[in-house]
Design a protein around this nucleic acid. Structure first.
Length: 590
RNA sequence: GGUCCCAUAGCUCAACUGGAUAGAGCAACUGCCUUCUAAGCAGUAGGUUACAGGUUCGAUUCCUGUUGGGAUCACCA
C-alpha cells in the first residue's frame, strides 16, 4: 500500500472518531472514475449506515476534515455517496522520486516460497499450433510474474512421448517413410512426424468397413498394427525403440527450434516414457488407506460421488495404469524433486474435470502439498468456423503463424521507412521483436479463462491495442533520452519545489506508473498475465497523450524540462518491466 | 441426460471482484506532420450488458428460471 493510501485511511479513521466518536476498522479506497476530479475515492454508503449518517453529509464532513488535517488532500468533491479526493502535486512528485530511486520498483522481495509452473507439455506426434502458443506464453509469463512477486520459480515441461498416438505416426512412417529424414525431406522434424500422423489417420479411415462406421473405435488392421507396436515398445524391442528414439529426436529438434524462436525455455523436462509407470504404488497406498476400492474384475476405483464428482478408474483390470495414475505419480515426483509450496498446471479448460478429480484424490490421500496445487485453466483459441482440429487439418500452425508475423512486421517497418540506418542484422532482430511481440500480446491480453477467437483473415493487430504500439512508445522515449543526452539535459537532479503545477497528462501518467507494484501483485493473485498486458497498454497510451500535449525540450522551465525527461525515462523502465513479464522484448529504435 | 464454463458496441476484447454517466482497439466518418518518432493525437457515431424475475442505497457482476453456444462425463492421454 502506498503512503498516500496509508495517510488517507488513517485520517479517515481519525475523522470518524473526531466527528462521530466512533472508530471504523475497515476503510476501502478505490480509484476515482475518470469522469470526476481526483485520484482516490471513498465510497461512503457502508460507513454512512454504520455511523447513522447520510452518505452525502458524511462525505462532505470527511472531505472537509481531510483537506484541513491530512496535509496531502488539496480538494474534494462529492457525487452521490462518492467522496473524490485530489492529492497535492508535491505529494505525487514525492511518490515519483521514490519510485525512480528504487532499483527494484514493482518487484516484491523474496518470500522464500517455491513454485513450479508446468506448461507446454506437448505430444510428440505433431507440431505445435496456436493453442500451444497460448499455453506456452501463459506459462512463461506466469513464471515471470511469480518471480516478480518473490517466488523461486521452476519452469517444467512434461513431454507426452509415448503411447498409442506416437505409435500411429511410427507405423505410418514404417509403411510409407522410405527412409525419409528431416534433412532429405527438407522439413522441420516435428512437421515431418506430424505428416505421418496424418498419413496414419488416412490409412485407418480407408480401412474402416461399412459395418464399422458406427463404432466409436473401429478396429482396423492399421490400428491393430499400431497397438502391436506399442506392445513391442513396452517390451523394449530394440528395433521399435530405435525408431521411436529417432522420430522423437526429430520432434525435439523441431520443438526446440520453435521454443528458441519465441524465447522460452524450461528448467526441467519430464518425459512420460520415464514416468508412466509411476503412481502404481500410490494405488496400493490408496487401497491400504481405504480411499480406493477394488472392483470384482480387479480394476481399482475411487468413488467421489459424495463430492459431486463421479467414480474414477485408477488401475485397469489388466493392472496397467491410466492417465490419472500417472498424474498422481508425477505430482509426488515433482514434490520430491523440488519441495514445492505451490504447483501450477497450465492446461486447457477441457481438462477442468480431470484436475478437479486429481487434486481431490491427492487431498484425500493426505498429501501436504495438495492445497498448493492450482490448475491454470485457459480457454481454447477458436477459429471463425469453430474449434481447431489437428486431424482435420484445421489448425493454425505455430511456425507458419510466426513466419507470417515476421513478414507483416517487415512490411510495416519497410513501409514506414524509419530504419534506413539499420544494418541487416539489426533489421532482422527488429522484425523478430515486433513480430513475436505482436502474437504474444495478442494471446496474453485476453483473460486466460476465456476462450478467444483468432481470425486468420484479419490476423493479428499491429495498431492500437497491440504490442507494436507499446514497443513504439518505448522506442520513442529512447529517442527522447538520446536527445536529452545530446543537449545535456540532466534529469538526475530535479527541483521539485520549482515545479508546483503538474499537467493533467503528467499527473495521469505518473499515477499509472505508481500502480506497477499493485498490478504485479494482482496479476499473480489472479493468475492473469492479461492484467499486465492491459497495464502496459495503458502506460503506453498515457505516455502517448503526454507526448502529444507536453513539449519536453521546449518546456516552460528548466525544472519542467528535467522532470519530463525523468518521467519519460521512468515510463520506459516501467514499459520494459511490464513487457518483460509478458516475455516481450522492446526495441531501442523502430 | 448429469456436471462445469460462457453470452457486453458491426468485429475483437475491458470493466479494480457489488459502485458513479459500461470503457478500449479494429472497421466508418472529421480534423492534426516545415517543431521531441503520425505504428501517433484529438473528435463524431456506435449499448435495453441474450431474455424474464429476484436480492439492495446501487447488479454486466450475486440468486432463480428461460434461450443460445462450448467443454466434460472412456479400462484414450
Amino acid at each position: 500500500m502506498s503512503f498516500i493510501e496509508q495517510n488517507l485511511i488513517q485520517n479517515i479513521q481519525a475523522a470518524t472518531e473526531a466527528l462521530y466518536h466512533k472508530k471504523v476498522e475497515k476503510i476501502i479506497l478505490q480509484a476515482t472514475n475518470a469522469n470526476f476530479e481526483g485520484s482516490h475515492t471513498l465510497v461512503t454508503f457502508g460507513l454512512a449506515k454504520e455511523l447513522g449518517q447520510s452518505p452525502e453529509s458524511l462525505a462532505q464532513a470527511i472531505g472537509q476534515y481531510l483537506v484541513e488535517k491530512s496535509g496531502i488532500v488539496t480538494q474534494f468533491n462529492v457525487a452521490k455517496g462518492f467522496l473524490n479526493l485530489t492529492i497535492n502535486d508535491q505529494v505525487w512528485l514525492q511518490v515519483f522520486n521514490q519510485m525512480r530511486t528504487d532499483k527494484n520498483f514493482g518487484y516484491a522481495p523474496q518470500n522464500g516460497q517455491r513454485v513450479m509452473v508446468e506448461y507446454s507439455s506437448p505430444n510428440t506426434n505433431k507440431p505445435l499450433h496456436l493453442g500451444h502458443l497460448r499455453n506456452i506464453f501463459l506459462g512463461w509469463s506466469m513464471a515471470k510474474i511469480l518471480e516478480a512477486n518473490g517466488y523461486e520459480v521452476s519452469k517444467t515441461c512434461i513431454v507426452n512421448d509415448r503411447g498409442i498416438h506416437i505409435c500411429k505416426s511410427m507405423l505410418a512412417y514404417q509403411k510409407l517413410g522410405e527412409g525419409e529424414t528431416p534433412e532429405t525431406a527438407g522439413i522441420k522434424g516435428d512437421h515431418l512426424v506430424g505428416k505421418y500422423y496424418v498419413e496414419f489417420d488416412k490409412l485407418h479411415k480407408s480401412q474402416i468397413k461399412p459395418e464399422q462406421t458406427n463404432e466409436k473405435n473401429p478396429a482396423t488392421p492399421a490400428l491393430q498394427e499400431a497397438e502391436q507396436l506399442l506392445i513391442q515398445w513396452e517390451k523394449g524391442d530394440s528395433a521399435t525403440v530405435d525408431l521411436w528414439k529417432k522420430m522423437n529426436g526429430w520432434v525435439y529438434a523441431g520443438f526446440n527450434e520453435t521454443y528458441q524462436k519465441v524465447g522460452v525455455s524450461f528448467d526441467k523436462t519430464y518425459y512420460e516414457s520415464d514416468t508412466y509407470l509411476l503412481g502404481k504404488d500410490i494405488v496400493q497406498e490408496g487401497l491400504d488407506k481405504g480411499v480406493f476400492y477394488r472392483a470384482e474384475d480387479t480394476s481399482v476405483w475411487i468413488d467421489l460421488t459424495a463430492e459431486k464428482l463421479d467414480k474414477k478408474i485408477l488401475l485397469r483390470s489388466n493392472g496397467t495404469s491410466v492417465y490419472m495414475t500417472q498424474d498422481l505419480g508425477t505430482a509426488d515426483l515433482k514434490y520430491a524433486d523440488y519441495q514445492l509450496d505451490k504447483s501450477i498446471y497450465v492446461v486447457g479448460n477441457e481438462q477442468d474435470y480431470h484436475f478437479k478429480v486429481l487434486f481431490k484424490i491427492l487431498d484425500k490421500l493426505g498429501r501436504s502439498y495438495a492445497p498448493g496445487l492450482y490448475h491454470l485453466s485457459y480457454g481454447m483459441v477458436e477459429l471463425p468456423e469453430g474449434k481447431m482440429k489437428s486431424r482435420e487439418g484445421t489448425v493454425v500452425d505455430a511456425d507458419d503463424l510466426l513466419a507470417e508475423m515476421l513478414k507483416i512486421a517487415q512490411e510495416k517497418t519497410d513501409e514506414l521507412g524509419k530504419t534506413d540506418d539499420f544494418t541487416p542484422e539489426e533489421l532482422q532482430k527488429l522484425y523478430h521483436i515486433i513480430g513475436t511481440g505482436a502474437i504474444k500480446y495478442f494471446l496474453l491480453k485476453v483473460d486466460p479463462k476465456k476462450k478467444m477467437l483468432f481470425n486468420p483473415q484479419e490476423s493479428v493487430d499491429f495498431q492500437g491495442d497491440a504490442a507494436p504500439f507499446i514497443q513504439y512508445n518505448f522506442a520513442r522515449i529512447n529517442s527522447i533520452l538520446r536527445k536529452a543526452k545530446q543537449l545535456n539535459v540532466s534529469s538526475q537532479v530535479i527541483d521539485y519545489q520549482a515545479y508546483t503545477q503538474l499537467h493533467s497528462a503528467e499527473n495521469h501518467l505518473l499515477q499509472l506508473l505508481a500502480s506497477l507494484p499493485a498490478k504485479i501483485k494482482e496479476a499473480a493473485e489472479g493468475y492473469a498475465p492479461s492484467v499486465i498486458a492491459q497495464y502496459a497498454y495503458e502506460v503506453a497510451k498515457g505516455y502517448s497523450k503526454f507526448f502529444a500535449e507536453c513539449s519536453i525540450f521546449n518546456a516552460e522551465t528548466e525544472a519542467a524540462k528535467s522532470f519530463r525527461v525523468a518521467l519519460s525515462a521512468m515510463t520506459a523502465q516501467v514499459i520494459q518491466k511490464a513487457m518483460d513479464l509478458l516475455g516481450i522484448d522492446v526495441p531501442e529504435k523502430m
